[in-house]
Design a protein around this nucleic acid. Structure first.
Lengths: 222, 222
DNA sequence: GCGTGTGAAGAACTTCACAGCT
DNA sequence: AGCTGTGAAGTTCTTCACACGC
């Protein structure tokens, strides 16, 4: 999960991968509380909003530091800010989307990047029918120019939204261009060097997991 | 992860959640091998394609039954078929997409459902500007009609692609209509009854995990 | 008194290593 | 001889339960 096998937090300690995966959820819950004007929350309140146990939440936070006040709870804003720092969101991260089909365009249109620390700075495709097109103020460029684009825009992360058959080639080019974090929506297992970090999302796989659970439910009843 | 906390396989045993999450990956690898005309594969060959260790793959398969031949390996087609059965993909599952914004339309356009056992049979939205529109041969219907749609189309699963603010309402309606498996793309934690199964995908959260790893990498080097 | 922070216990998952079948 | 299937060992993750500080 981690490229190095080590997840160092700002104090140099190790953070379990399972904990890292939950941090964004906690941050979402905190933003919700801020919106609602809640100033303080207990671990159980925050945990319920996040869908985990209060013990789990406290243990997770303990890997990052000590943020609460005994007998009181957590200062919502202060915790959100600490968590931002831990997640490395203090500075904006620059994202490139590769593959401008339906999904790529939908991802380019997504409104949620800014509020969560990301900015889409480049769009790439290898299809002449799309290259040059303007999508939400960004002109789609050619895959062939990827090295120049990554350098010019100082891209940190790439989102892969190509068809399955071209995804591995796209990833090879992305890695070659120096990007070390990839979010892939392509329904294949990608091969990357050890120092590159891949998060994969596959709609078909998620549905198949639902199908398994449904079947388990139905058999459990028989 | 599982609604009941128990994952019964066809023989009545328990399958760990972590194993269930990997089964779709194995199935993808098997389809790749079938395409390539490979008839037999060892656990290590299949594992490499799937990005896991051979011991992991053998252990995972052992929860489902005994599919290989010692000294030889696995018959690719037979294993794919067994896995289809285990995952409950023998019959086609009927899917409804709720929320026809950019993402919903991109998901409706996605070509990968059929080959993986799913069929999109209904599209819903609560915006008059979209209701009645034809998307790939399916007319978008009103959220208000959800109960009738679920019954008429015998919907098994719902994909939620609404904005965050309306996602919980959409999920409540989906559950009320009798659907027990939900794949959500909304960036919020959803509250559902215990017997409803939710798989959640959040682009922002995935990017934040990448950001954490990047930060850990950079601090680890200092 | 109250809720956090945390060692310790327990559960789940992964890896090891080899017996057993072909 | 070779590769699967699997108990056992090892690791990671979760839950428990209580000491600690407000």
């Amino acid at each position: 999960m981690s490229p190095t096998g080590k997840n160092a937090d700002p104090t140099g300690n190790q953070v379990p991968a399972a904990t890292v995966a939950r941090l964004p959820t906690y941050l979402r819950a905190l933003h919700l509380l801020i919106e609602r004007g809640v100033g303080t929350s207990s671990s159980s309140g925050l945990a319920e909003l996040s869908g985990v146990s209060s013990a789990q939440l406290r243990k997770d936070l303990s890997f990052l530091g000590s943020f609460g006040t005994r007998g009181v709870g957590y200062n919502v804003e202060a915790l959100a800010e600490s968590m931002n720092r831990v997640l490395g969101l203090a500075t904006e991260h620059r994202v490139m989307i590769v593959g401008m089909g339906n999904l790529g365009q939908a991802l380019a249109d997504y409104r949620g990047y800014d509020s969560r620390g990301f900015k889409v700075v480049a769009l790439l495709d290898n299809n002449d029918g799309v290259i040059g097109k303007d999508v939400r103020g960004i002109v789609v460029e050619a895959m062939a120019d990827i090295d120049a684009v990554v350098e010019r825009e100082r891209v940190s992360f790439a989102i892969v939204a190509t068809p399955a058959r071209s995804a591995q080639d796209a990833v090879d080019a992305i890695v070659q261009a120096g990007v070390r974090g990839i979010l892939s929506f392509a329904p294949i297992s990608l091969q990357v060097p050890d120092d590159v970090d891949v998060q994969a999302v596959d709609v078909g796989s998620e549905l198949q997991i639902l199908a398994f659970h449904k079947q388990a439910r139905e058999m459990g009843m028989a």
